[in-house]
Amino acid sequence: MGLFILRRFGVMLLTALCLTFVVFFLTNLYPNLEKLAKTQGNQRMTDEQVQTWLDNRGYTDPLLIKYGRWLGVVPGFTNTLDDGQFVGSCARPGLPREDVPSFCGVLQGEWGYSTVFKEEVGEIVAKRLGNTAYLMFWVLVLMVPTALLVGVLAGMREGSVTDRSLSTFSIITTATPEYVSGVIFIAVFTSSAVGLKWFKGTATQAMDNPTFENFFLPVLTIALYGMGYIARMTRASMTEVMTAQYIRTARLKGVSFPNIVMKHALRNALIAPFTVIMLQVPWLLNGVVIVETLFNYKGFGWVLVQAAGNNDIQLLLAVSVVSVFVVLVTQLISDIGYVYLNPRIRIS
């Protein structure tokens, strides 16, 4: 088991390296750098001015060197401009020139400096990730129990009306992407045209003061899309368990139906959905980006959109490292959890 986890960590590291390199490559393509120069410097710069701006700040160095600087294995770029201004990949506004470290990369714990927000990348990501974690927590609280309940109820008696209605419900939710359900919810529950006005159409205030009124719709929107899939998996697993020999034996010896479901079937039926739930978490990340844009909730997804839209290289790299980490860690947990939960694998 230890070796297995160690190997997985190795693969994880390799994946993160490859992935950040791809992101690095794409964000450092010349048209992207040109856009960066124009948004940072001046929109009306000529091509030569763009070139000098980039040269002066080390953006035109070879790709591998720049990547090494970001990693922290190559000394940071430093340059003094003609007007005496000191620039460099490790320089920060307000930091005296003598204190600028020569290495500043991920290995030194420096995530870089965001060109859009004018703030340390590490701080931005930590703060926004906190907002998103809060959102995700409530999403999971709403999604997992509901999905399991729907799945178990549907799978309990295959082919019954309950099964059909709940299966229809879960198919509809899997067919409704967040931007569709979000728009429908906003239209029905918040607009003055329908007049219900039960909830608020934006979650901007929810960052400081989350209430049911301004926070429920974003949570519901993300939860619904993921819910259908988990429910269908739970249903499949439940129907399989309900046709197993030991359930029939229990029925034949006269155990009541509720007892069979609660004591005999449920535990075994919940092993498979666990894996699905863990693998669903990275999927929620997509939903988070859409919902945070739709409801104007400034979390991790919102940062991703801002960073990508403005070609903020270091912020984008940090964002991709975090998302890769989320994907791979959830995979690891689902693998370990599966082994741990399933007695047939655990004992052998």
């Binding site: 393509l29 048209p31 994907v327």
Partner: peptide, 29 residues
Amino acid sequence: SFLANLILAFPVILLFYLLVTPEIVATGV
């Protein structure tokens, strides 16, 4: 499999934001 997992580890929207921009179209990627 490593390559496939690599692409799958990308959040789809990040990939779209990196690939589907006028700047990237201009580079010919």
